[in-house]
Amino acid sequence: MGFLDVEDLKVYFPIKGGLFNRTLGNVKAVDGVSFSIEEGKTYGLVGESGSGKTTTGRAIIGLNDITAGKVSFEGKDLTSKKSKTSAVRKDIQMIFQDPYSSLNPRKRVLDIVAEPLRNYEKLSKQAEKQRVGELLEMVGLSPESILKYPHEFSGGQRQRIGVARTIALKPKLIIADEPVSALDVSVQAQVLNFMQDIQKELNLTYLFISHDLGVVKHMCDDIGIMYKGRYVEQGTKQDIFENPQHIYTKRLVAAIPDIDPKNREAQKQFREEVQREYEHSYNDYFDNDGLAYGLQSVSDTHLVALPEKG
């Protein structure tokens, strides 16, 4: 049993329509996703827009209703009604994508960071201030800034305020949904370094959701690739980047711009090759609805969505 286990997770959104707004069908945002994360590791969930990666993260933390499947955290079932309000929830926290809109502009930093504390712990005003100051120091902001408002900070600083709020309850698992996509490269580096630092310090486990394979490669130990609500491939970082098996993964890896201009030609050829393979063998990798097949294991750590043999 792992630290976080997701088994056959399904999240469907109804499509309403017709004369009386009946439910006509479902958008299968997440359609049978299973994975598990080990404690202290970073698991990357990669996909393009509409792949269902964000919905998966939100379903785990309870922001989206789960249609079917099971999510268990340290052996406790999160999907049962009872656990919805229990203390398990405070062990899982989330970092959001946009540091500009995820902080309430009318609240001071003190109130923003203290909010989860107020929900779960009863602290005196003095103790609360103390804790918030410590948290801010931890994320590299001066404790004097507790009385400031979000607009007085830069994007990277705001994202760190968001992180301070996230780690306030000493969570064990953090779901980071595109935490650096809205940031400039140099600021992105700041936040990524810092996330790695506090991971070591607090023994955190990350579910790192991103569309940026470069960032994912830098941050993650294990990676899952999603496409249209399903997994197409899962494996260690080496499995995915050095030995991608699924044509979609190959395409994704090939699409990353190479930072060395010398590799331009090689990269172009590689991309054309992958594109040819993609067109040629599309039917071997996707079913009639254009969706991925079930996962088959190709090694101990490496799973690929392929049609069942025979």
Binding site: A189, N193, Q196, L213, K217, H218, D258
Partner: peptide, 16 residues
């Protein structure tokens, strides 16, 4: 130096 390099792995990124 602050770009996560797709070639090498875990080293610390440079922060301006």
């Amino acid at each position: 130096n602050s770009v996560p390099n797709t070639q090498e792995g875990q080293e610390e990124l440079h922060v301006i």
